[in-house]
């Protein structure tokens, strides 16, 4: 007989039961002992009181109590740091929480373009922070925000360069109408994908390489979206330096939308 066979047979011994008469008699004896001979109908506690009893017993255990308190401190502290950190500005003591939060958000994005868009959004936050800052009173903070803004945009530009070097180029055709009185550029959202560098789109072979114009005087320039976005970012940098924060945000927003349209 193997081990499982032995165990099966041992379990059969569970069928041994006490004598029924003894059981009945003993039950009465035990009730008399427990209730002191009084004929009281026992009241079962409600589910709620049972729950309270279990709850109290569970959380009064030292290990569980310490664990619960530690969890509350860690989770509560983390949440508080996150909430307060969201309002923090560069130079604030809780700014690190915001940085960690941003790093986590970045780490969650595996697509480089998505990372660039997120960084652009972060740069916009820096601009808002700068706009709301009393620059005279908080020179150090203003400097820190500027550095942070510049660093973020530099990362985006590096990211765009990396995409340019690895991925097929997404081009965006600019239709420029040459007029004597102004140099307005009308932009159409015609995006195509082709290879390598910026290409020149010909229109029915009527394009003059020498002048860069078509017969009807239009100039067609096709350039990679990333290059356009980079230019917008550079413009945003200039606007930021000139304290035109609304303009900076608009440019960054436009750069972000441009990246979005290239997807």
């Amino acid at each position: 007989m193997n081990e499982s066979g032995i165990i099966q047979k041992l379990k059969k011994l569970q069928s041994i039961q006490p004598n029924k008469d003894w059981e009945a008699k003993q039950h009465s004896v035990m009730e008399a002992q427990v209730y002191n001979g009084e004929l009281i109908t026992p009241r079962e506690p409600s589910r709620f009181s049972n729950f309270l009893l279990l709850f109290k017993a569970t959380f009064s255990q030292p290990g569980i109590m310490v664990g619960t308190i530690l969890t509350i401190i860690i989770v509560g502290g983390g949440l508080a740091t996150y909430v307060v950190g969201r309002q923090a500005k560069p130079g604030d003591s809780l700014y690190f929480a915001k940085e960690i939060n941003d790093q986590v958000k970045l780490a969650m994005r595996f697509d480089r373009e998505e990372q660039n868009k997120l960084k652009l959004a972060m740069a916009q936050e820096r601009v808002t922070e700068m706009a709301n800052l009393d620059k005279e009173a908080d020179k150090e903070k203003a400097e820190a925000i500027s550095k942070e803004f510049q660093a973020t945009l530099n990362e985006v530009k590096e990211g765009l360069t990396a995409i340019n070097n690895t991925a097929p180029v997404v081009t965006r055709k600019k239709e420029a109408v040459s007029t004597p009185d102004n140099n307005q550029v009308k932009t159409t959202e015609d995006t195509t994908t082709n290879d390598a560098t910026a290409t020149t789109s010909l229109e029915d072979g009527a394009f003059s390489v020498a002048t860069g114009q078509t017969k009807d005087g239009r100039i067609e320039i096709s350039e990679p979206v990333n290059v356009s976005a980079r230019q917008m970012i550079e413009e945003a940098e200039t606007l930021f330096a000139n304290a035109d924060y609304d303009g900076t945000i608009d440019k960054l927003q436009a750069a972000s939308e441009l990246l979005d349209s290239a997807k």
Binding site: I40, P42, R43, P45, N50, L53, L54
Partner: peptide, 12 residues
């Protein structure tokens, strides 16, 4: 736990 509270019904 009920026994710890001297609950007679629980004992039975």
């Amino acid at each position: 736990l009920r026994l710890k509270n001297k609950d007679q019904a629980a004992f039975m």
